[in-house]
Structures are given as structure tokens and as C-alpha cells.
Design a binder for these strands. Sequence first.
DNA 1: ACCTGAACACCGTTCAAGT
DNA 2: ACCTGAACACCGTTCAAGT
Lengths: 186, 186
Amino acid sequence: MALSRADWTRAALLAIAEGGTGAVAVEPLASRLGATKGSFYWHFRDRRELVAEALAVWEREATDAIIARLEGVSDPVERLREVLSAAMEDEDDADGSIDAALLASTHDPVVAPVVQRVQQKRLAFLEACFRDMGLPRGEARDRARIGYSIYLGWFRQLQAGGRTDASARERAAYQRVAIDLLTRPR
Amino acid sequence: MALSRADWTRAALLAIAEGGTGAVAVEPLASRLGATKGSFYWHFRDRRELVAEALAVWEREATDAIIARLEGVSDPVERLREVLSAAMEDEDDADGSIDAALLASTHDPVVAPVVQRVQQKRLAFLEACFRDMGLPRGEARDRARIGYSIYLGWFRQLQAGGRTDASARERAAYQRVAIDLLTRPR
DNA sequence: ACCTGAACACCGTTCAAGT
DNA sequence: ACCTGAACACCGTTCAAGT
């Protein structure tokens, strides 16, 4: 039966999770879906457009949705704690792998602006947490940057550190130290 | 005149700095060097071998050399401060770009083990700093991980955040907050 | 020893032709 | 509307042949 744009996009997100945007290859995707390359070019202008659509889906689901959900938590320290664990917990499932893969695909000119936008949103969220804790704007921004770095570093060290086996205990320890450092008064 | 392995390796490192390992392409490199692809295959078995050799050079110069130099600094807080600023300061020059580019090339199976080894060395260095400050082993390891994340995050936010213009002031602020957070007693 | 040039495979892209 | 199949360009790789 006929394929849809969504079918190709879903396949592309799987490929991204496995090997970054470099792994989004039209021909292999076509065989996986039981079609030919020609079919792909009926749905999309080119490979670039497919990657862009996959990224748009990821941006909505992995950032916009989470932020919207947590904005209801009134205690800023609690909000920080929840966003960290929400983000770190799906390390195994699709969203976590995609996040890590895209952070390793920033040389792709299609990826760069999306990742940049996503980072702005996440930094703004964190900065608001620290302002709500009573920190002045400059310090809140600095801590937001550091906090986001700590989040990124978790994936980075999972990924390139060869530790696919990070236990729940290890993750909890990392998180605890991070929150302790970040929420300590000056 | 005849080209050497070193000529090709140097060209490869330039390409890596510009676009990650994905940008190491034999044919374009050959034209840049005024030779043909055939010439390349006399010096190297394949593209993979070229990338591996370039990474070996980077590992020696960007990690082993810096660690060796700083191991002479006896005050651990001072050592931390110096390694952070040494690492962050060449953000513009070749080494900094290569570092950032490789962190975004970890899907390359040639890159992954090298980056992993480099990270182990850097984490061990940081952990030693914290142990020298009197922290117990577990806590030293946790803080080393967080500290390395903060370092990685700096490049990440430079790179994908679109801020190529990070001023010396901004860098200093990031560094100061990082050191403050990390060296604060529990 | 060092390199060229032609050849082939693989994937992105186009397009005429099919249902 | 949706897809096939053949064609071409680009880059990795091989290799016989040149100096």
C-alpha cells in the first residue's frame, strides 16, 4: 500500500537515533520501507527536506512538550529536579537517543539552527528557575548555562564514554550532585 | 614534488576543524593538494586510516601535552583554573575547533574510541584535582564528571548556540562561576 | 618510490513511463 | 496520486600503467 510523508519521517527519526543525521540515507531507507528511491522523491523535494521534517517533530516532542508540562510546577528547585530527571530518564528510549545523536550532528547545516533554537528554549526555562529562586538576572543566566552543560555532559559521557550500562544509581548520583551544586546559595 | 603522509594528515586535520570527520573526503583533499586520489592510496590504505592518523596527532597534542604541562602545578584549585582556561582559550585556533568538531563526530566508529580514551584521561586529571582538595574518591569522581561536562558545554554552546562572538568577558564569567561552584566545600 | 587515469560500486537526484 | 527503473553525478576504492 501507499506510503505517506509520515512513514518516511518516522523511518528517518529511527535512523537519526541510530547514527545521527549522516545515517539518513534515501536508498537504505527505501529498501527498509519496501519501496524505491523514486517513491521517496515523490513525497519530498530532497534528503534535506526529510531531515528538516524529522527535526521539526523532535523539536515539538522533546522540548516544547516537556517545557509546557513542567511550567506548572511552582517550586523552582523542584522544577529543576524534575526537568533534569525527565530529560535524563529517557536516555534509552527513542527521544533520548535522538537528543544525543543530534548533539553529535551539528555540522549538518539543517541541524544547527534547530539545535540552536531548542537550546535557547531550554536555557530560558532554566534561567527562569534560577530567577524564581531569587538570583539576579546575570547570575541566573550563568547558572542556567552551567546547568545545561551538566545536562549535555551526561549524554556526552554516556555516548562517547562507552558506558551504555549507566545504572539508575549512577544517574541518580550525577543528578544529585548537579542539583546540590546548582542550588547552593552563593 | 612528492607528498608525504604528514601532508595528507595535516590537510585532514584542517578539514576536521572545518566540518568534522565527515568533511574528510579523499577527492576534495586531493585537489586541494594538487594531486589525484590515486596518490592518496599510495600513502594510506583507505580513508579510515587517514582519519585515524589525524586523531592520533590530535590526542597527543590536545590532551597528553596539556596534562603533562599542568601536572607540575601543586595547588589543585589553581590547577583546575589553569586547565579550564588553557582548554577554553584556544577556542578560535585550530585545537579548539578540532576539539569541538570531534565531539560532534562521535558517530564515526573511528572517532568513538579515541574520544573515549581522551575523556578518560581528562576525567582522571580532574578527579586528581578534587582528591588533592581533600574530597573522598566518590565525590571527587562525581565532581570531575560535572566539571568535564561544564567544559564540554562551553564548546557545545559556542558551536550550536551560534555565538561565535563569545567575548573574553563572557568566557571569564562562565569560568568563574564554574570554578566557584566546583570548588565550594560541601 | 610516487603518481596518473580509467574503472567500478554506492548513494543522491531527475525524469519519463507505468498503474 | 503514487511508484518504478533507468540515467547521471559524486566520492571511495582498486589497479594497471607510467616516471
